[in-house]
Design a protein around this nucleic acid. Sequence first.
DNA 1: GTCTATAACCGGATAGAC
DNA 2: GTCTATCCGGTTATAGAC
Lengths: 221, 221
Amino acid sequence: MSSAKPESKKAQVRAENTRRIISAAEKVFAEKGFSGGTTQEIADAAGLPKANVHYYFPTKEGLYARVLDDILEEWKSDAEIFDTSDDPEVVFRAYIRRKIEHSFTRPYASKVWAMEIIGRGHVFEDQLKASFLKWNRKKVSQLRKWIEQGRLAPVDPQHVMYAIWATTQHYADFEHQIRAVNNGKPLSRAQTEKAIESVIQLFLQGVMPRQESAPIRSWPE
Amino acid sequence: MSSAKPESKKAQVRAENTRRIISAAEKVFAEKGFSGGTTQEIADAAGLPKANVHYYFPTKEGLYARVLDDILEEWKSDAEIFDTSDDPEVVFRAYIRRKIEHSFTRPYASKVWAMEIIGRGHVFEDQLKASFLKWNRKKVSQLRKWIEQGRLAPVDPQHVMYAIWATTQHYADFEHQIRAVNNGKPLSRAQTEKAIESVIQLFLQGVMPRQESAPIRSWPE
DNA sequence: GTCTATAACCGGATAGAC
DNA sequence: GTCTATCCGGTTATAGAC
């Protein structure tokens, strides 16, 4: 009576439980790996009995695949700027920033993806590869077009993409190492901003100094 | 009689078995993670019965720690150029090249390290951190010195190190993803060379085009 | 030092009451 | 849909003969 459709209440509970299980699984798989993370631990993190996890996701493998599927969608949404701007500098700045921001706001996603690829990558191979390759091809041809127009240096566009993914996801995947360097503390907001600026500068300018007042090369071989 | 010291023969067998077990463990842990990789699988890969693996390494955890210890030594030896050259361009070229070469010749090492750091990183925290931090500090101060001398652009040296590690180790850690992009085939020697050149160019010059004939800045803020 | 057999334990999955 | 109790396969580690 309180609801027009009796089913919609149940559907809502179902959606909520599903979401919580996936979120808990992302965290557990990120910290323990697929084999190391137990369904019991996922259930505890989701606040449900273990049997309920199996009710929503009959197998651990299936739950894991679902988690990865969601992560690929995040990877894609991070690149939306490719569709809304045609300026390479604007796209690089925005894409790198968004990727690194996500490395701090949703680090588990990046970690699970990394572990999947590092290991044998069965789910990637069987269920995600085709979608990923199609998406990657589109982004790479955008870079290639800019290179042909002389708006990007003549660098291999695929390797540039690899470098963006590597440098930005590093802040999520190697969080423990970075925290150790930072005296055991996670990076502050200001330090996060510094990381973003450093990576952007690397891509836009490299690390060699610019000779502002010297039109001829002043560094001998 | 064929050997002066009777013990040395046994010591030799011991050294050989130890080496084979560590090498097998590196491979198995890289492909399956710490929890997913079984001692049985490691024993099979080493060509020994499982009980013998336990004879040399009483616990799986201890074997894993030993594998990681060896990998940190490799990371350090990759940076030897920092001690033999004082030219930033030479050092960057050599360090990046050597790191990427190792990503192709010994990919399992990089994968095990990555998984350890991505997960909770207990062994890193307990046994490797101090040695790693000391080594890192030394390399970073070398970069900082060059920046003060104006021989490197004023970029944060620690983030430059992160970027080098990320981009070079990516070719080992994300090998499956890269192979998928490359039509399922591992990179050829020529493609490997292309990867090395691309990453070196990224660090030395960035991706923005150079205006060779324009001595004054032509890019407005 | 090597190997077979086994102990002790744990985790994914399910049965079946509610 | 939810939850308790349980099964079953697999894993680390060890005992003990050779």
